[in-house]
Design a protein around this nucleic acid. Sequence first.
DNA 1: CTCGGTGGAGAGCGAACGTTCTCTGACGGT
DNA 2: ACCGTCAGAGAACGTTCGCTCTCCACCGAG
Lengths: 183, 183
Amino acid sequence: MDQGEAETRLLDAAEELFYGRGIQAVGVDQIRAASGVSLKRLYQVFPSKADLVLAYLRRRDARWLAALTGYADARPEGDARILAVFDWLHGWFGEPDFRGCGFINAFAEIGATDPAAAEVVRAHKAALRDYLAGLLRQAGRPQSLVDPLFLLAEGAMTTAAVTGSPEAALQARGAAAALLATA
Amino acid sequence: MDQGEAETRLLDAAEELFYGRGIQAVGVDQIRAASGVSLKRLYQVFPSKADLVLAYLRRRDARWLAALTGYADARPEGDARILAVFDWLHGWFGEPDFRGCGFINAFAEIGATDPAAAEVVRAHKAALRDYLAGLLRQAGRPQSLVDPLFLLAEGAMTTAAVTGSPEAALQARGAAAALLATA
DNA sequence: CTCGGTGGAGAGCGAACGTTCTCTGACGGT
DNA sequence: ACCGTCAGAGAACGTTCGCTCTCCACCGAG
């Protein structure tokens, strides 16, 4: 096993455990066991748990946004593409291991004590907001709708997590459609 | 110091520390030090840290909702009272020690491992939703607006936490007003 | 003054944490 | 065949955790 594969396996294990059970609730040794990577190698690749957490957040950020944009950008430009964001959320919320937004969760857990992690969360949310802004531009819609749509998406994520139901995505989609109809 | 005062001082310390730094990040001994209550008494009143966490969540639930409803119900019945919810959020977000919704934070931290705490969070969010439903009824507005307004409020809470700015409350208020204008 | 009981201070317990160290066995070049 | 290098397994380290226990100062009743 070379360094690259070790890193991949570590991040795979970290993502599943950190996202599924929480960052503080998962010990380094559990990640070693789940990844099959030795502790020595783990600390060569990620000098501390905080580094591993950062790498987990950064990779999840890239993948999550790529999945969303890949889905939405395949829809016809315009309002349909905007609403597709909420369709994608609905599919995500329905996944069996869905446990809310990993970034909001990470911020709640370590945002107060790990400034670097907090910054990754902020950047992730800013990127989502920017993506929505781009969709509105493509659709010829006013930028004043960015914040309402963003808040609806954020609210849907936390609500779906707490209720354990994907329904919040449909409610957010309906509200988004209503707001688009007024503009 | 009698049992009642010990409980109050413990909950005061727990609320400040759990909310401000996170539940897992705060040890029982820190709560003992901050409250001035002996460890022996602490464990008489709350047999485990999990019990203390539950009591913290329950008291915060009651107080938070009382503060919100006390503010909004003082406004004239109708749309103004609905929008007052977002005004109250704006004031809350601006408090210096604001760190997001304590219930969303708690759910992110221990929701996966502490079912009792998760249930308190669910009940708290259901109560907020019910309150919004009552305001809509008073205002003669359709109940179909409950979920959009709730999602906007939730989204505003997490966004204000991540950005560190109370602005999200104003954006949510604007979106709520737009939705009310369409119905 | 002498007790019995109560409560606080803090030492101590076992477990778990993040991190480092030691041992051992496999491998590649000569 | 030999030796140096390296990586993996996991023991060990120091700290911190939630929680319990020990000890002693205090206090009202007799």
